[in-house]
Nucleic acid binder design. Structure first.
Lengths: 270, 270
DNA sequence: GCAATAGTGTCTCTTAGACAGTATGAG
DNA sequence: CTCATACTGTCTAAGAGACACTATTGC
């Protein structure tokens, strides 16, 4: 910000700010888009909405919207703008977003996309967020959307998303797959308490790879502060029998050590 | 982008775009800031510039500038805007930025910062980049800056940078420390060929931690596609004697396996 | 009873950490 | 000659992959 300062050169800060006219420069917009993943019927799904309006009317894209001030003229933070998309379209109650430790929704910034021409209207920089949530109800389209669905990611390769949202989705997927290795974020796909079998299903679904259950069990139980025993078990065995499984909850770890590595031959590129 | 579409509701895309007026909305600016690290005199340094103009005139900050169109009205990509800062203020020639494999400069996006009030002029979203370069000449202040220096990061804790650049710098440092573990980016701090001792010095400088040289050597040599032997050695031993060291160059690996882990008791939080 | 799931144990191979030891060569 | 540095080797403990085995329970 040293160079290119849009400055009149005055030395008095207050006088400078009073005289500053932001409208003198070429307009540029910022949007916030969200790739929200959940697991439904053992398939990794992403929240997709169908656009009601041009550009790309009728096309699918990730939920998002322009960053702009509320009625009082105040802008939200980027994370608040992303969270607002989740509340509006995924039926997530705002409470779950607050306590980052609660078994609610995980939300993190993915990156920004600003290639010229990515939006036909004008120069638009999009700040993309990545979110994980436990199984959620059917989504409701917000304003500007005609439809909202949980779209299996296996299916997204056949559908071209509007803008550069294919790229954002690909980056979000790569980040998600990588983060399961060395962070406890897999638990963000599960409710507050869960079994090791359910946790394994998350890893298998996201990685698209079968894991050996005894080894998986040993790894997650050895990872420091990853899983805490609740002392309770499930009420009944699985659909086709089996013992009742112990219930765990996520521990305070923010980084897994040792990590839960995917098979070396499919090493994930981040 | 489904919701909040700044749309007139027309169904014809061309008519919509022709009628679209971007100036009808509250102005918002985007800046691109860069945290460029290098190693000088065995100290990790970051490029800092002193602001010539308000706001924060006279304060240190990271190099950066507004994202805006060139004379032809075309916006650069975000990465191009970041690269332009490096060319202008760090004396990096543009060639080194092109070939990402060349022993030039590493440039990656760090994240975006958009808290309201972070810039007193108006709403500003900053897209921050992280860059590493081998030892560089003394920097030259670009337009809008009165001074440009390589500032040892140990010293930055005493200096408050303008805007929220303290936060950006802290995030950049954390990312850098973490990435040395599982990517070959340490080589970006070194010229095209280097010794294992020099590579170890990079790790020790960035992590602020002494490493056992025999173990370090084994780890980096076992990491697949990390280091290739050039077949040459240094011209002479160290300042105080010793054999001539083998020279290596960076291999094609983009992810290190196995990773070069820092001591477990200082496990790095990403 | 069958079959699927939960959970334990064990064997082998590889790697990490710690550090001893040898060779080189600038001052 | 001295001593920091380059490089090799060795010992031990721990973890990973593979898989055998027991226990539980819904249908």
């Amino acid at each position: 910000m040293s160079d290119e300062t849009q400055s009149t050169g005055r030395t008095n800060e207050e006088a400078f700010l009073a005289a500053y006219d932001p409208r003198a420069y070429t307009p540029l917009a910022v949007t916030v888009d969200v790739a929200l993943f959940t697991i439904r019927a053992r398939a990794l799904c992403v929240l997709a909405v169908r656009r009601a309006n041009p550009p790309f009317a009728g096309h699918w894209c990730l939920p998002g919207g322009f960053l702009r001030p509320d009625d009082d003229g105040r802008f939200p933070t980027l994370a608040q703008a992303a969270a607002a998309r989740l509340v509006a379209e995924a039926g997530i109650n705002a409470d779950a977003l607050e306590g980052s430790d609660a078994p609610g929704v995980h939300l993190e910034q993915l990156g920004s996309y600003g290639d010229p021409g990515r939006d036909p209207r004008m120069a638009v920089v999009s700040v993309a967020y990545l979110a994980f949530a436990p199984n959620l109800p059917d989504p409701t389209p917000g304003a500007g959307a005609t439809e909202a669905v949980w779209m299996p990611v296996a299916q997204t390769s056949e559908i071209h998303l509007a803008f550069d949202h294919d790229q954002i989705l690909a980056d979000a997927l790569a980040r998600t797959r990588g983060k399961l290795e060395y962070t406890p974020l897999a638990t963000a796909f599960l409710p507050g308490s869960f079994t090791i079998g359910e946790l394994q299903a998350v890893y298998e679904t996201v990685w698209g790879e079968k894991l050996i259950s005894s080894d998986f069990r040993r790894k997650v139980r050895h990872a420091k502060d990853f899983l805490f025993l609740t002392g309770r078990t499930t009420d009944r065995g699985g659909d086709r029998g089996g013992p009742r499984a112990e219930l765990f909850r996520a521990g305070p770890a923010r980084l897994l050590y040792p990590p839960i590595l995917a098979a070396a031959n499919e090493r994930l590129v981040r």
